[in-house]
Computed example of a mutant assay.
Amino acid sequence: MSGTLTMRVGGKGRVVLPSELRARQGWIEGTTLTAVEQDDGSVLLLTREQLLARVRSSLVGKDAVSELMAERRAAAQREDEGRA
């Protein structure tokens, strides 16, 4: 179930998360949350597990090693052309 809940930033920048939200999310005392600011200015609150899942899904189909090698080869090619 999703919903819209209102919170206020209090003294020292503290925000109290409504108990209803904490209960739905299973966030107990001591749960560590990460705030992720999006390009559009919105902010996501994610647990460590949610953050890891998000990062993993963004990397699906990516071949970081091949991309890095291609970048290095292109840089080396530009260097070689600059020396000639």
Rank of each mutant, 00 (worst) to 15 (best):
D39E: 13
L46Y: 06
V15T: 08
Q25V: 03
G10C: 11
G61N: 11
E20C: 01
A76V: 04
A70T: 01
R22T: 12
D39T: 08
V16R: 15
E37S: 02
D63A: 14
Q38W: 04
T32L: 12
A75G: 01
T47E: 12
V55T: 09
T47G: 08
R83N: 13
V55P: 01
G30S: 02
E79I: 09
A76C: 01
Q77M: 02
D63L: 10
E79M: 09
L21H: 06
R24A: 14
P18D: 07
Q25A: 15
R22K: 13
T31F: 04
G11R: 13
G26N: 11
V15G: 04
R24N: 09
L46N: 00
R22N: 08
L33A: 05
V43R: 00
Q38L: 14
V60K: 14
A74M: 06
D40A: 08
R72T: 00
E79G: 03
T31S: 05
V65N: 08
L45Y: 14
G30F: 01
G61V: 11
D63P: 05
S42Y: 07
M1T: 02
T6R: 15
G30I: 01
R22V: 07
Q25D: 07
L68W: 10
E20F: 03
D40S: 07
L33Q: 04
E79D: 12
E71V: 00
S57K: 14
V16P: 00
M1V: 04
S57A: 13
L33D: 08
E81D: 12
A53L: 14
S58G: 13
E79L: 15
K62Q: 15
R8H: 11
A75E: 10
G26M: 10
R14Y: 12
T31G: 02
V9Q: 11
G30N: 03
V65K: 15
G30R: 02
L33C: 07
P18T: 07
M7F: 03
A84L: 14
E81R: 14
E37F: 07
A70V: 00
T6N: 11
L17G: 02
L68H: 12
G3S: 05
G41N: 03
P18W: 09
A70L: 01
T31L: 04
G10P: 10
R72W: 00
R72I: 02
S57V: 06
L68Q: 11
R8Q: 15
E37Y: 01
V9N: 03
S42V: 02
Q50D: 15
R72E: 01
R54A: 06
A35Y: 11
L5E: 04
M1Q: 06
R48M: 08
